[in-house]
Design a protein around this nucleic acid. Sequence first.
DNA 1: TTTTAGTGTAATCATTATGGTTACATTAAA
DNA 2: TTTAATGTAACCATAATGATTACACTAAAA
Lengths: 139, 139
Amino acid sequence: MNAEFSVAVHAMVYLAAHCQASFNSSELASNICTNPARVRKVMSKLCKASLVVSTKGQGSGYASIAEARRTDLAVIAKAIDEVPVEDIWQSGDLDRDCLVCSGMGSVMDDICHGMNLVAFDYLKKVTIGSICDRLLQKR
Amino acid sequence: MNAEFSVAVHAMVYLAAHCQASFNSSELASNICTNPARVRKVMSKLCKASLVVSTKGQGSGYASIAEARRTDLAVIAKAIDEVPVEDIWQSGDLDRDCLVCSGMGSVMDDICHGMNLVAFDYLKKVTIGSICDRLLQKR
DNA sequence: TTTTAGTGTAATCATTATGGTTACATTAAA
DNA sequence: TTTAATGTAACCATAATGATTACACTAAAA
């Protein structure tokens, strides 16, 4: 799971915490501590998944959708096409006679998939709203 | 989670499936499809955690421990010092006044930790024995 | 006692992945 | 018509990864 996920969550939290306003990629980049091009790349994916709204032209930028607080992190991860556990290296070789050698690849694949399923279940329980509340001490 | 985990699991499964014999790093590397030095590096960690036994000198190598089939993948991951979800990039900056900017780092850290907890729970349920049985079609 | 075949471990190298930077076509407000 | 923004691609520097090489150490075998 790379930094795009952090950028996406941070941006969505920031927008949700200032839900009346709109911010351009430079303003978001400054708060996230990255560069505007990276922010735009991530926001473009969120926008395609309808998790944020973006406008174009002068004075444009990004803003929260109405249901932003209810958006969970699993949805965000899928929108930016990320999985918690990256594909593990598949050892062995399908063409070998040895059952261990030829079978370990798919075993590791399944294990990776299994971890991703439980990790996604966990991410489903974390919402942008819950993060906002925690950050703004509204527990 | 990098390839050392694959190497470790593959090696443990191979040794457990041939539990009467001992194999050197070249033999294991050939079955895993990697190089002997890499195998030795991983096996050395497993050995320190007493998950395999190794001998030295001429004719030496690695062999299964008696309880190998009951070893679970969480124990192996810990032995080689790996976590399923690598640290996610901590966005923001602790020294900023903005609560979102200064707080997101630890939020992402906690999320990463939460995913690792559930992923480790999953790995605990997968044992070397269960993988052997699957590969050798003893379901 | 010497030779030999192995482990343990570090150093180096090539390749890949990652993130930052720059550039520019496109868009829409002013 | 100008300006300020997004969307996206290309390029570069750096970091991470795995393969390779080397070698000190160890213990069996001759």
